[in-house]
Simulated assay, not measured.
Amino acid sequence: MHGGETTAYNPDYLRKQEKASIPVCNILGVDVAAIDMKWLVAYISGNLPELSGDYICVTNVHTVVTAYEDPEYRKVLNGGIMAIPDGGPLSSLGRRRGFPAMRRTTGPDLMGEIFRISVSQGYRHFFYGSTEETLGKLAERLEAAHGGIQIAGMYSPPFGPVSAAEDEEIVRLINEARADFVWVGLGAPKQERWMAEHQGKVKGLMVGVGAGFDYFAGNIKRAPEWMQRGNLEWVYRLMQEPGRLFGRYLHTNAVFIWRTLGESIKYIRKKPD
């Protein structure tokens, strides 16, 4: 500052400056964070108070293709702190495009890493989504695995639309819990839209983790390590829920392969000789 000038506090400007430090690989219009898990946990831990009220999207092939086809949803994915590469094909593509450090950072893995350090760091957690039965199992298993973990609150929202009055009550409930992390398990694209709508209203860092609640509650199992390493976890999920996922995967995987192939050809042509 010069000559006694003062700079007005502008949280939007500061957030843009903070986001500028995050390396991204643009895939079908979505700015996917070109990071690994170690970087992500260090970033969150080192900036947690400043991230309160904002959100992180957990992005895979399905959400990227959905965003490619829906510009409004694309704004949602690009409008938070970052969209992390949950899907293996995203990080693999990123490495081919010049981001050698880019690795898969799944929602459940991020939850596990944060839970592991929560007691020592004094982190408080709020879980929003799923069913009361799943939330109960989730709490029981977390407390057994991480003695002393602080579960500040849980809420299973109604299945249908929520009125303005009900939404205000939900926000009040979350904010009074004083949580550091607000884990949102509504499934994509609903959870990302909910976080964007509550950006700046909810206290705590919102993270949309999809089926993460079910994994930690023991309702569904993760794929074996060899399938995760080979970007085949989607096959394992498909075997578990073929009726729900077959049509989705058939469409989104085909669009992703076709469109990213076209992008890659353009990318190669633009590279200098």
Rank of each mutant, 00 (worst) to 15 (best):
M1N: 13
T6G: 13
T7H: 14
A8G: 00
P11T: 09
D12A: 14
L14Q: 13
E18Y: 15
K19M: 11
I22Y: 09
P23F: 02
C25L: 02
I27R: 03
I27D: 02
D31Y: 05
I35P: 07
D36S: 08
M37H: 09
L40C: 15
L40E: 14
Y43H: 13
P49M: 06
L51D: 00
L51K: 02
I56T: 11
C57E: 01
V58I: 14
T59M: 07
H62N: 11
H62K: 08
T63E: 06
V64T: 09
V64R: 01
T66I: 02
Y68K: 13
Y68R: 11
D70S: 10
N78K: 12
G80A: 10
G80H: 06
I81C: 10
A83V: 06
A83K: 02
P85E: 04
G87I: 03
G87S: 07
P89T: 01
P89Y: 01
L90K: 03
S91C: 13
S92G: 11
S92V: 10
L93R: 12
L93M: 14
L93V: 10
R95D: 05
R95S: 07
R96V: 10
P100F: 04
P108E: 03
D109N: 13
G112Q: 11
I114D: 02
I117C: 09
I117T: 12
S118T: 06
S118V: 01
S120C: 06
S120Y: 03
R124Y: 03
F127N: 13
T131F: 00
E132M: 10
E132H: 13
E132F: 06
L138Y: 00
A139C: 15
R141T: 08
L142E: 08
E143F: 01
E143V: 11
A144W: 07
Q150Y: 11
I151E: 02
G153N: 13
M154R: 15
Y155H: 14
P158G: 03
F159Y: 15
D167W: 07
E168V: 00
E168H: 00
I170W: 00
R172W: 00
R172H: 08
I174N: 04
D180I: 00
V184Q: 11
G187S: 05
P189V: 07
K190T: 10
K190N: 11
K190G: 04
Q191E: 14
M195P: 07
A196F: 08
A196P: 03
E197C: 05
H198T: 07
V202H: 08
G204M: 05
M206Y: 03
M206N: 05
V207T: 09
G212N: 14
F213T: 01
G218M: 03
N219E: 12
K221V: 09
R222H: 11
W226Q: 08
M227T: 04
G230F: 09
N231K: 04
L232Y: 08
E233R: 10
R237S: 06
M239I: 07
E241F: 02
E241R: 08
E241H: 09
R244D: 08
F246M: 12
G247V: 00
Y249L: 03
N253A: 00
F256I: 04
W258K: 12
R259I: 05
T260I: 11
I265K: 12
Y267F: 12
